[in-house]
Design a protein around this nucleic acid. Sequence first.
DNA 1: ATCCTATCTTTCCATTGACAAGATGGCGCC
DNA 2: GGCGCCATCTTGTCAATGGAAAGATAGGAT
Lengths: 189, 189
Amino acid sequence: MTGTRSYHHGDLRRALLAAAAEVIEESGPAALSLRDLARRAGVSHAAPAHHFGDKAGLLTALAVEGFDLLAEALHGADGGLLEAGVAYVDFAVRHRAHFEVMFRPDLYRREAPEVVAARERSGGALHAAVADLPPGHGTSGDARGDALAAWSIVHGFATLWNAGALPADVGDDPQAAARAVIHRLFGPR
Amino acid sequence: MTGTRSYHHGDLRRALLAAAAEVIEESGPAALSLRDLARRAGVSHAAPAHHFGDKAGLLTALAVEGFDLLAEALHGADGGLLEAGVAYVDFAVRHRAHFEVMFRPDLYRREAPEVVAARERSGGALHAAVADLPPGHGTSGDARGDALAAWSIVHGFATLWNAGALPADVGDDPQAAARAVIHRLFGPR
DNA sequence: ATCCTATCTTTCCATTGACAAGATGGCGCC
DNA sequence: GGCGCCATCTTGTCAATGGAAAGATAGGAT
């Protein structure tokens, strides 16, 4: 109901989450202001409280959305662990705001049941990808250790990329660069 | 001058940085308040502005301190790339506040000359460790790619550890766990 | 002894997050 | 069709914060 300018917004919750992601993407979570979000949505400064309670509540909802999007992305990646890793990086780059919040537990209520459930969904997707990996690709037989190493390398690469910490010679294609990095861990030899 | 309660604090700058690190370690950068730091140091709420200008200035100083500590830690690690990686993780865990700020460019002035210089010092230390690695340890001959993969895996592991995102079965010794992870990348075969 | 400058204080303002109480209007129910 | 319920949104308010401006203090240089 994008056209109506009535008393009721119609889709405030979604609008606020989208605006929050946009702000965080541009200026980081520190610059996030509930009142600014309300202004962008064209509602009063107290409207967000009804949907999220407080700031942490809004970020909790963002984190849940993020973990679900991540699980979806990982499940959708065909091609074993390597492509799952690329999908992880791709998710982090394309949904930078969600990704940033998800791994910043001081910003939201990480113990909230919806968060725990969503986090388990994405964790399950990661482990499924590790289990799919055929032997002879640098795996050690210790699936748990493999998963931890894989998670570490893609998470680290994605974080450094998003932080702008990587030197310019890495290029401007995160997927390609990620593929090369992951290849060093699990690529066929 | 810890005893004197004079008009001049004597070591305000250092006291504020230490207090900031403590607060961030406990509650994250979002909870940082200049006024709270001033209260902890026993000075007026405007005193910090003289030393750091504003909040971003304080965090810039913290980041510089962090990059220098990291460079020092990496240089001090003997034992090639593996031990340098362990030192990286150890730094991130022991100086969690510095580490967190360093890679959150929206919190401080990442282009400030002191920051650029300090960052280059730690980057140089990392590359030196990669260059030290003897062949036959999974290196590909592409030192740049090796460095990126090594940096990614230790950075990812450290970040996930600090975020409390890792499952409990990883244990409680970050150095040991990190060693196992890095071993999968560059360990002798 | 005097000035000078870095350091710190006091005062003030706009913005923010959070809360309380009230207004609005869609929806089910009769 | 009319009525009342309740989710949704608004207005008003408060303490805390970051930041700026202007003044006080002290320790050292000349």
